[in-house]
């Protein structure tokens, strides 16, 4: 269990505050299967397509997470302002970001159901920052998250920021989700 966690590296995608689940994945797209390997690609295509264009990919704006005609994004880490994931309980929200290729989010605060879905479903890691980094980081910056020491490195700008340890959900995140956690603890039988 004490294996070293690899750093998460990749390009930043920056958003503002109160990005709700309708912006993350508009309701019209919730009809696609998450199990079918082809159909689920729609979620990568439409991830964050509900964000008003001017506020998508800050500070410049008008940058889609996933390019036209693609199902996977070039961006790996979302940096956003407060209350990320507010609104509905749709697990399609963290799922679509994972399908698009996003591995982590960094924001000062989350809406609770979205946060919980990220953790229990093992889709991506919801890190909390001490300050609002959405004004510091630019979309496209090369970032690295040191998961052992909880440091965010911005290689493009040559800056580093402390981020919060995962706290009480760390064990579930490390296990990879609630089922894996429950199996490790004998709560659910292995199949």
């Amino acid at each position: 269990m004490s294996t070293t966690l690899k750093p998460i590296k990749g390009k930043a995608f920056v958003l503002g505050k109160n990005i709700d689940t309708d912006q993350i994945i508009p309701a019209a797209h919730l009809v696609y299967s998450l199990d079918d390997p082809e159909e689920r690609k729609f979620y990568g295509k439409y991830a964050l397509s509900g964000v008003p264009s001017a506020e998508s990919g800050l500070p410049q704006g008008n940058i889609p997470l996933t390019k036209e005609g693609k199902t996977e994004s070039e961006f790996r880490i979302i940096v956003a302002s407060d209350n990320f994931g507010c609104g509905s309980s749709r697990e399609h929200a963290p799922a679509c970001l994972e399908i698009a290729g996003v591995e982590a989010i960094i924001t000062p605060t989350y809406a609770r159901i979205f946060y919980r879905n990220c953790v229990d479903g093992g889709f991506l890691i919801p890190f909390e920052s001490y300050e609002d980094l959405s004004k510091e980081v630019h979309t496209g910056d090369e970032l690295e998250i040191d998961q052992e020491n909880f440091v965010l490195k911005n290689h493009t700008q040559g800056k580093e920021y402390k981020i919060k340890p995962l706290g009480s959900v760390a064990d579930i995140v490390r296990a990879g989700g609630i089922f894996e956690y429950a199996r490790q603890n004998g709560m659910v039988a292995k199949i």
Binding site: S89, N117, G121, F179, M187
Partner: peptide, 13 residues
Amino acid sequence: GIGNTDAAFIMGT
């Protein structure tokens, strides 16, 4: 409210 994974967990346990 909960997500799909949590609902599946309840369905089984």
